[in-house]
Nucleic acid binder design. Structure first.
Lengths: 327, 327
DNA sequence: TTGTACGCGTTATCAA
DNA sequence: TTGATAACGCGTACAA
């Protein structure tokens, strides 16, 4: 392993100059700098992250806390963050909190000091706890807004308002919402957006909280039929697909009798075999944006925008339409 | 941040004794050791990985390479490995290779020297390359066997032989296999197991390679019908579910006309709404076993077993049965 | 069995 | 703009 000392010797400068040429190039005469960089190239030098961490306190490691890996929604978010980290020569470590506020707090405590910062995805902890934590450690929140912290979200509520507009225009008034996992902040926001945009003439029937699975979607169908909804909006595509499947099974035609749509897009699972009306967005972009914001925080620069919104566009499928019967 | 020096002072011993009590407990008097451990607990001490890395060369970071995060099969494997790492005070960094042998090689090169070892899941590289890499860096292979390297696999081939036995007993002779992603070593193994256990009187119709998605499963149905298979075995549950869905759509009854089964178990997605006949196993156990084997390798201890097999048990569902028509 | 003293590779402080 | 030097926190000969 070639060390910085070797580079310094080869370039005929002191170690401190060599170090500066790499980490603070602006503080070094350009001629000196190029001599150092040339030596770095020639010797194939890479800084030793451990040694750097020891003095600078920055480990080059960033932690991402996710509630679960079972929900495939998080997969592309992680992948996006990981690529952004890689591009910046950092490592990403993923920790699963199992959707438990307690375990989330434990993880944050245990890891702080071990990593340079956190991306906390869909946190379950209270605003106050998160705010306090974010005051001492660089942290970016994803899929939730905590006033006072940097956050990145996908604007599914806006997309749902578009969706509701379309459903209303099609004549739907009783809409069932297959709600997401318990404790999900984003779920509440989506639910609120639906209820509000449905307006006083509509009725939102909330079914759940539900695990975001195919099976739960199928099992929710009875409730949907009992409550005479003409449209169903599901928290995610697995729920929606399960509902479509079961509606099929019991002989209800989609969309002639009941429309089905989903609030998120699990395109990666290739779930769109019946082209479900859904929201389309860029989850990897969410991950990358969060990582970039976090890196600014770590470097002491202010984040470009405190709250980033990734747009979610309504994508029409074949599972929504005008209801045959008006209730 | 509490340092080892603080622990030593609190326990009334020297730093080197405190250090030994943690890394080489057997070299320390049991009474001293417990005093140190008590102080560690009380002060909430965690070693500084950077400092340790500087002297020991071990970073406490382990990398797990997975082909993709889109396939939910890998999620519980990652979670299992992550928990094992956490239990051993190590970090796990997940890197995605996109199923590309080139990117896989790049990742391994880039990260070696940055991490203590690798868990390479379903690698795409050639045996020789992997063997060469494993000779210089601690590495455990998951879901593939490379002679000369430590590996951990789920024994789906054995499970598939059980499944074939049942299908044969039910009178099936023409079985379609919805094959998995291109380049998957395990896919070949599963395919071979099916063909072999089907015997000379049976016929295996391979459809694919296919992306492991719901949509691909649905789209494969036409081929299944054209080739007059009476049973379908899918590489994973998403494919199987897509097939069941589409068979429904075109009016083919399952299992009366066609049986459907899956070679892996995506229980976490709640995909079992129609209880698909599938193999049941413990993917988190795979991840944990891989991590434990790797930690032995890193510590210079021989792995307990060179090739670990996680059992896969046949789990009967409602999608398989005796075929109505014999061909 | 325990303690002393040094080195790991880098960054930061301060003086030149 | 550059150089000397002192940390950073821990492991480990070596000595006791």
């Amino acid at each position: 392993m070639t060390r910085l000392a070797d580079v310094a010797r080869a370039a005929g400068v002191s170690m401190s100059t060599a170090s500066r040429a790499l980490s603070r190039p602006d503080l070094v005469a350009s001629e000196t700098r190029s001599r150092v960089l040339e030596a770095v190239q020639r010797l194939g030098f890479h800084v030793n992250p451990a040694a750097r961490a020891l003095t600078s306190g920055k480990t080059g490691l960033v932690a991402m806390c996710v509630p679960t890996l079972s929900n495939p929604f998080f997969a592309p978010i992680i992948a996006g963050a990981q690529q952004a980290a890689e591009a910046a020569d950092r490592h990403l470590t993923v920790v699963v909190t199992e959707g438990s506020a307690r375990r989330e707090a434990e993880v944050l405590t245990r890891l702080s000091g071990q990593v340079d910062g956190f991306i906390i995805v869909a946190p379950r902890g209270g605003d106050a706890d998160l705010l306090e934590f974010g005051a001492t450690t660089p942290a970016v929140i994803a899929e939730r807004v905590v006033p006072g912290l940097t956050s990145v979200i996908i604007d599914t509520p806006a997309g749902l308002r578009d969706l509701t507009g379309m459903l209303k225009a099609d004549g739907h008034r009783r809409v069932a919402y297959l709600s997401g996992p318990e404790g999900s902040w984003m779920d509440r926001l989506r639910c609120d957006a639906l209820r509000e945009s449905l307006g006083p003439n509509g009725e939102l029937i909330v079914i759940g909280p539900l695990p975001p699975t195919f099976r739960a979607g199928a099992e929710a169908v009875q409730g949907i039929l009992d409550r005479r909804a003409t449209a169903v909006v599901a928290y995610n595509s697995l729920l929606a697909l399960g509902a479509v499947y079961q509606l099929h099974n019991v002989g209800v035609r989609v969309p002639e009798q009941i429309s089905v749509a989903s609030a998120d897009d699990l395109a990666a699972l290739g779930l769109g075999a019946p082209e479900i009306t859904t929201l389309r967005f860029d989850p990897a972009g969410l991950g990358a944006a969060a990582m970039e914001a976090l890196m600014r925080l770590i470097d002491g620069r202010p984040p470009a925008v405190p709250h980033t919104r990734i747009p979610a566009a309504l994508q029409l499928g074949s599972t929504t339409g005008r209801p045959a019967t008006d209730v």
